[in-house]
């Protein structure tokens, strides 16, 4: 059980690090907007960077252009 005598102070250190990180991020203004980020995550703006979706988009575009002609 004596391991606790070392582990618990260690958790205190980790906790202090987490706290400092949070306080810093508040200070840096990362929590000023509590609404926008919730929506922002929904944007698939990394889509073209995923090879599979890029291919799919290409196919779709080709499909559309044949439709309209």
């Amino acid at each position: 059980m004596n391991i606790l005598l070392m582990l618990i102070p260690l958790t205190l250190v980790v906790m202090a690090v987490a706290l400092v990180a949070f306080l810093w991020s508040v200070k840096a203004g990362q929590f000023d907007d509590l609404e926008g980020p919730a929506h922002r995550i929904l944007f698939d703006d990394d889509d073209p960077r995923i090879p599979a979706s890029a291919r799919r988009a290409e196919q779709l575009a080709r499909h559309r252009s044949t439709d309209s002609s």
């Binding site: 203004g29 000023d32 907007d33 509590l34 609404e35 926008g36 929506h39």
Partner: peptide, 10 residues
Amino acid sequence: RVNYATHRAS
């Protein structure tokens, strides 16, 4: 950076 909640940007 846009703050959507306040419609402000920095």
